[in-house]
């Protein structure tokens, strides 16, 4: 528990807390909607970072956990009338369980083979849900309007969802720091640097990798439930977009993988930029091409991301930029 000694810990938590506080202070619905998406991407990117940044395993199927968790939670809410809180928890646990099962098998693969397997898992789960009757098949499911009554009407329900999202974002940042400065985190980073050497030195790599995978899957599962609850419906195309998996990787890379501040800043920056491109008349049709160009520039010239680049430039600020 040394995390709280680092200024970076307070800086990142403070930034996220301020983002949420502004929304609650102004009570503005438009700001809330914007901030919901922003916090959602911060949570998704930070949770991916536990596997990608700390452990060095590239997961192209992070969105599977978002989709599957969302589906499980949504199913419980719409078919069995579960309240949002329990459904969110159940969605997260379902994703974590899937990660545990998958991890036992796929984490034996290394490098590009693991990355390929995650693409395969994403496609397999999407194709399965598309055909799975209880989840509504290709048309998905939608919520009955009456569901919102138990939260005091739809308007209140949206505030509750935002509050939950905000709490989840704070939690994922907190846990990322706790992991990063723990013995467990050191083990993960040793796997990232050289897995064979780590094994020789007595790091129990299979167990650590699996737990990192489970932890990284828990949050997107919960986020998925909140997102689809707010949306009111869920369908396979929205839930398992491979594109979105890769956008999350871009966010982590943009900010700097392996740091906690990086993914948070990267996802906020990418989300704002995408919002701007989508609405600007010149870039509206070219936003995907522009995002691709940005990604290429980062990969070729700033592979450590924004925070990583600043760390190497300003060694004195390293304790602040973790």
């Amino acid at each position: 528990m040394r995390a709280w000694r680092y200024p970076a810990f307070w800086l990142t938590l403070g930034l996220v807390a301020a983002a949420g506080a502004v929304v609650f202070a102004t009570r503005s619905a438009t700001l809330r909607e914007e901030m919901f998406l922003l916090l959602m991407f911060v949570t998704l990117a930070s949770s991916l970072n536990i596997l990608l940044g700390f452990t060095g395993y590239v997961n192209f199927g992070h969105i599977v956990f978002f989709g599957l968790g969302g589906y499980v939670g949504f199913y419980l809410m719409s078919q069995h009338g579960w309240p949002l809180w329990w459904a969110t928890l159940a969605g997260g646990l379902a994703s974590a369980l899937l990660a545990w099962l998958l991890g036992a098998a796929t984490l034996r693969l290394r490098g590009a083979y693991f990355a390929l397997a995650t693409i395969g898992v994403n496609e397999a789960v999407r194709a399965f849900v598309n055909n799975f009757r209880p989840f509504g098949g290709p048309t998905g499911m939608s919520l009955n309007f009456a569901v919102y009554r138990q939260y005091g009407g739809p308007a209140n329900a949206l505030w509750w969802t935002f509050g939950a999202m905000f709490g989840l974002t704070l939690l994922v940042i907190l846990i990322s720091y706790l992991v990063k400065f723990s013995r467990f985190g050191l083990g993960l980073m040793s796997i990232r640097e050289d897995e064979d050497a780590a094994m020789v030195l007595g790091v129990r790599t299979p167990r650590l990798k699996t737990w990192a995978f489970v932890l990284s899957a828990l949050f997107p599962g919960m986020v998925g439930v909140l997102f689809f609850f707010k949306n009111g419906n869920v369908e396979p195309g929205d839930a398992f977009r491979l594109q979105m998996s890769i956008e999350i990787i871009v966010m982590v890379m943009l900010g700097g993988s392996g740091t906690v501040l990086g993914p948070a800043i990267g996802s906020a920056a990418y989300e704002r930029l995408r919002g701007y491109l989508l609405t600007s008349p010149i870039f509206k049709n070219l936003h995907l091409a522009f995002a691709g160009f940005l990604l290429l520039i980062i990969v070729l010239f700033v592979p450590a991301g924004l925070v990583g680049w600043m760390r190497s430039r300003l060694p004195k600020l390293r304790r602040v930029l973790e």
Binding site: V250, N285, A289, F290, G292, F293, L295
Partner: peptide, 28 residues
């Protein structure tokens, strides 16, 4: 070429960036 010796994540992302540019311009 610039990332050919970098960790494989770099080449995966570099080729994906090309993919995004082709699809983005193509869609427009």
């Amino acid at each position: 070429h610039r990332v050919i010796n970098a960790p494989y994540l770099s080449t995966l992302l570099a080729t994906f960036a090309v993919n995004m540019m082709i699809i983005g311009i193509g869609t427009a």
